[in-house]
Nucleic acid binder design. Structure first.
Length: 204
DNA sequence: AGCACGATTAACT
DNA sequence: GTTAATCGTGCTC
């Protein structure tokens, strides 16, 4: 399979998010070992056409970039990795046009390669619980602060996404995003979460 | 300089 | 169902 290029990412988050389902996130460890999983759940965060008050880029600093959110405003095809709840890392891909806070959160994977290494990093938890949540998959794939801003399209990169054939539309489910807390309506209920129907590795 | 809270998880009752 | 863990970020004073 070939690595997704910047042209794939340089579209709106609501288009890229469902399109990423079924494709494979790959992580190359420093020792050369490959860890990977098929993307089964994503969420779009986007201020392209209208504000999205659930998006970090809109919530903070009146919609202007901050040190934390600046990569969200940058060119598509790079990783936006941020820290939350004092202990968890979240992995996103930056999408859309430069200058917009536009990204897709990868929420869950179905493990493919390097399962033993992932289980070790996840404290020996069962297969089902290795990557069925955004902080879990970051831990399983050894993704953290060091990867904020890395280019996912570069041939020598340590994180990338492999292409896969498009899925039939009826395999993709949509619903409200998770964990938005005090975010006001209508953003709280926008159906910008996408997942693969009946896949056991979807979070929740 | 200080503070409230978060795109969560795991371990409780 | 409830809650502790744990700290960077952005906002207020």
């Amino acid at each position: 399979m070939t690595r997704l290029t910047q042209a794939f990412y340089a579209r709106g988050a609501q288009v890229v998010a469902p399109d990423l389902l079924g494709k494979t996130l790959v992580r190359r460890l420093p020792d050369g070992q490959l860890l990977s999983g098929m993307i089964v759940e994503t969420e779009a965060y986007c201020d392209a056409d209208a504000p999205d008050l659930a998006c970090h880029g809109d919530r903070a600093n009146n919609g202007r970039p901050t040190p934390r959110t600046q990569v969200m405003f940058g060119p598509a095809g790079v990783a936006y990795v941020y820290f939350t709840y004092g202990m968890h890392w979240m992995f996103n891909v930056v999408t859309g046009q430069e200058g917009q806070a536009n990204a897709v959160l990868i929420r869950a994977l179905q493990p493919v390669a390097g399962v033993e290494e992932m289980a070790a990093r996840r404290n020996g938890r069962p297969l089902r619980e290795l990557t069925n949540g955004p902080a879990k998959l970051a831990q399983a794939l050894a993704i953290d602060q060091a990867h904020n801003g890395v280019n996912l399209c570069h041939p020598d990169g340590v994180i990338w996404i492999d292409n896969a054939p498009a899925l039939p539309p009826d395999a993709i489910m949509t619903g409200p995003r998770i964990g938005l807390g005090k975010t006001p309506e209508p953003w709280l209920s926008l159906p910008w979460r996408y997942w693969l129907k009946d896949n056991p590795y979807v979070s929740k």
